[in-house]
Design a protein around this nucleic acid. Structure first.
Lengths: 145, 145
DNA sequence: TTGAATGCAAAAACTTTGCATAACT
DNA sequence: AGTTATGCAAAGTTTTTGCATTCAA
């Protein structure tokens, strides 16, 4: 099934309605697969033909998150950005390009902190790993970090 | 030299004045070494004998951060917390107890991303690694994650 | 004495909420 | 028809800023 249809189906299964606004927003997220988008980014991506209130964007990304369809990331300024989950349910992390926003998936390697946590009997519940830098394209474009 | 004096010296060297307010705030941070404190935490820690405006707290932690004396961390709600640097200049990460806020230092493990980044020619500039969970004490106290 | 630090009040930035209306199924 | 979603406006939070005053060196 096409990604979009999978998402619609997932939402419908839990009583969500597929409105024109949700379609637009999901469209924008699909067009930016692999790139984190802030609320402001999303606002700017809304096509002129659509009028969507900011509160609707907030509410919609919250819905998508509750359904496990998007992953989020908090930047150094405390602002949250979102993107459609890469593979539903597969835990991973990202290399995040500060030039263009593109991300590259990297596997999670919990063994890297297992020794330390076991040693002091620390019970790990969750973690945050984000690697920032410049992707090959942005380096080629001459962007500096 | 005592930690407090080191901090004062460092600030003085760059033209900062050691005011009564800064002393109080640094005192609070020293009393909570190894524990991240939010702005609200700091406000609550101000002794009754001292009156300090919130804007002063913001400005002071910013000053300390500019001088490289405190490290910060952004929680899942986008709120920033601060603590005095463990060892100035030594890069590391933390296991962070969500029960009591205590942290345990763990070394940085660049092998987490080195393979992947080299493979796709991604130039890493900085990164964020935070491991959350419950410390031994909080588990013993019966706290659940 | 002079420039940095502070309090206060106001504004800015971001997010959430209540309610009447519109839209989906 | 019944319920969810939306727009709008208002309020809530957190953070920043301008300016007159105070304080450290």
């Amino acid at each position: 099934m096409e990604l979009k249809q999978q998402i619609y189906q997932n939402l419908r299964n839990q009583g969500c309605r597929i409105t024109a606004h949700k379609r637009s927003l999901i469209e924008m997220l699909i067009n930016n697969l692999g790139r984190f988008l802030s609320i402001t980014d999303l606002e700017n991506l809304i096509p002129d033909s659509v009028s969507m209130d900011t509160s609707t964007i907030y509410r919609t990304v919250m819905t998508l998150q509750e359904h496990g369809l998007i992953e989020s990331m908090i930047d150094d300024n405390g602002l949250t950005s979102y993107m459609l989950c890469h593979e539903l349910g597969v835990h991973h992390h990202h290399l995040i390009c500060t030039g263009c926003g593109k991300t590259i998936i990297i596997p999670c390697q919990p063994q890297l902190w297992q020794d330390a946590s076991q040693q002091c009997q620390f019970l790990v519940t969750h973690h945050k790993v984000e690697i920032y830098g410049l992707c090959a394209d942005c380096q080629a474009r001459g962007l500096k970090s």
